[in-house]
Each structure stands twice: as C-alpha cells, then as structure tokens.
C-alpha cells in the first residue's frame, strides 16, 4: 500500500518508522482525510445554492430592513451602503474570499460579525439538540428492549400504537399542545424564553424541556420502532442467538449483551442521517419558544435577506451533517472489528 496516495499532508518522519509515519499510514486516518476532502465540494455546493436562492428572492436587505415606508432613494442609499447593489457573482466571490481569509463577514442588519453571532447562538442549538437526542435515545432504547423481549405483548402493542401516533404529530403542533398543557394549564414549565446554564442549570433545563420534547418525540417513536424491529429480527433469525439459548444464556443477557450490540448499527446510521432533519426542526421550534439559537437566527436572516448570516448558518449546518455522518462511519468500525475503512479486506 502506497502512502503517496494518502490525502493527508502530514509531515512524515523518515527512517525510523516513527509514530507520525505510522499515523499517516493508518487506514482510518486516510479514510477521515478522504471524507473531509470530499466534504469541501459538498459544502461549496450547499453555500452556493443557498446564496443563489436567497439572492433571487424578491427584494433585498435594504428593502426588507427599511420597510414599506421607504422611498426608492432611501432603499438605493442603503443598498449601496450594504453592498447589496453589486452583481450576484461579485457578492458571492467576496463572501468566498472572506472564507479563505478566515472571516464569515458581518450581518447586513446588525453589523455584528457572523462569527460572533454563531458563537453566541450555537451553544443554544447544540444544547437543544443534545437534550432532544438524550431524551429520544434515552427512552427509545429501553422501550425497544422491553418490546423486543415480549413481542406482541401488551407493552409492545401499546408502545407501537403510541409511537405511530407520535410519528404522526408534526413537531410544531406538538409544541403548541405541550405549551398548552404543561405551561398554560399545569404551569409546570415555561412557555417562552431561555436561561443560560451559567444563570442556573436547573432553570436552563426547565426552559429547554418543552422545546427538546417537541423535537424528541417523533425521533423517540422512530428510534423505538426501528430498534425494536431490528432486535426482534436478531432474536428470531440469528444463529448466535440460538446457540446462546442452547448454552442456557438468559433472554435478557442475550438481548443486552449480544442482540443490542448488533442492532445498534442501524440506529447509529439513522441517528447520524437524521441530524439534518433535526437541525431543520430547530428552526421552527426555536422560533416558537423564542430560543436565541441558530435556527431562529436563520429564519430572521432569511426574512431580512441577510446573506452573510444565512451563509454562515448554512455552512455550520453543512459541516455538522458531514461530521455526524463521518462520526457514524467511525462508530461502525469501533463497534464492529470486522469493519476497517481503507483496509484491503
């Protein structure tokens, strides 16, 4: 195997078979490097598409910011000031140049740097996503295990019916229903707003619970059904399960030690692939709950045709999706020793 074809530009110490040389020859690292290189045209395509779409929406940032009472002269004056009067190609190349020089530009509306906007908004969205994933996976796995242990039992039937119902509810509808019951009627949880973790973790979690549940419920139902089906397939059709049973291994031990590990592959793939959908859900949910995350920022930026902010958020979303897919692939190899990326086998 030649190291010349490896995409990593790692300086390799020659002669003594040092750590760096071994690292550069690692198939996994070469795989990561190849995937990251492949991400570049993907991210370029995504940002170009977003730039083109927002640029071709009716109106520009100056019109949207100045509103209905602005005269054409005022709109022109602000357009020139913001640089939105320039041709599409010039503006996109300016933005790309900014990327290569390490800046994402400045918001056309607030003048803040896009980096600082993302820096203040990303933690909110990350926390929301992490909380939603924690709820969905934390509940989906035990539900699937119980259902698979007693397939077609009462628990299985009830949870499958409920999960079907859960899958049928749009998250923005669920959000309003949750607010109605848990904020308005029961007064248990707040309906709007955000408290940063450094102002009290308890309050922070309290404010994030309804938004996180709104996102998590459909995921929970989906993951539970998927994992249950896979577990049952493993338990009913795989030889290693029959062998384990013949050796007198208990049913729970078979599920937890053997079947679950194999069934996790499908779940990991879906969780990783779902991240794009999950990010999309944050746009609506953050808006409904008034969370100052990047989803909320994106919606507002589109409204004001604030292209630098839209591009910054789209780039972050793209990077997150690419990285999550890469992480899923790496987890495969960590969970299954048979999977080794880049090896001859």
């Amino acid at each position: 195997m030649s190291t010349a074809s490896a995409p990593l530009k790692v300086p390799v110490r020659r002669g003594r078979g040092g750590t760096l040389a071994r690292t550069a020859e690692s198939p996994t690292l070469r795989f990561i490097a190849r995937r990251l290189l492949m991400a570049i045209p993907v991210l370029w395509g995504v940002t170009l598409l977003a730039f083109a779409v927002v640029s071709h929406l009716p109106g520009n940032a100056a019109q949207e910011l100045l509103g209905i009472n602005a005269t054409p002269a005022e709109i022109h004056q602000l357009s020139v000031k913001l640089g939105v009067d320039k041709p599409f190609v010039t503006r996109y190349l300016d933005w790309l140049h900014g990327i290569f020089t390490g800046t994402l530009g400045h918001s056309l509306a607030s003048g803040q740097s896009v980096t600082s906007i993302l820096g203040s908004d990303l933690p909110v969205t990350f926390e929301l996503l992490a909380y939603a994933l924690l709820i969905s996976l934390g509940l989906a796995v035990p539900i699937a295990l119980l259902s698979a242990r007693y397939p077609n039992g009462i628990f299985d039937r009830i949870t499958m019916v409920l999960s079907m119902a859960g899958l049928s509810i749009a998250n923005y509808v669920l959000a309003l229903v949750l607010v109605y019951f848990f904020a308005v009627k029961l007064n248990w949880l707040p309906a709007l707003g955000w408290v940063p973790p450094d102002h009290g973790l308890g309050q922070n979690i309290k404010y994030l619970t309804l938004p996180a549940v709104s996102i998590a419920l459909s995921l929970l139902c989906f993951y539970a059904r998927l994992l249950r089906a896979d577990l049952i397939e493993q338990l009913q059709g795989e030889d290693y399960v029959t062998t384990a049973r013949a050796k007198g291994v208990g049913p729970w031990r078979i599920i937890l030690r053997h079947a679950l590990r194999n069934s996790t592959f499908g779940l990991i793939t879906v969780v990783a692939l779902n991240l794009g959908t999950l990010l999309g859900a944050t746009v609506v949910i953050e808006d409904i709950f008034g969370l100052p995350g990047i989803g909320h920022e994106l919606l507002s930026a589109i409204g004001y045709r604030d292209l630098p902010v839209v591009e910054g958020v789209v780039l972050v979303f793209g990077v997150l999706v690419v990285l999550s897919n890469l992480l899923a692939d790496l987890l495969y190899s960590a969970l299954d020793p048979r999977v080794r990326y880049g090896s001859a086998s």
Binding site: V179, Y180, A183, N187, A191, L192, G193
Partner: peptide, 9 residues
C-alpha cells in the same frame, strides 16, 4: 396568548 396564560408575560 399561551405565554400570558402561562404567566410568561
């Protein structure tokens, strides 16, 4: 309306 009913505003 929901937020005012929940005492948030």
């Amino acid at each position: 309306l929901e937020e005012m009913q929940a005492g948030e505003g």
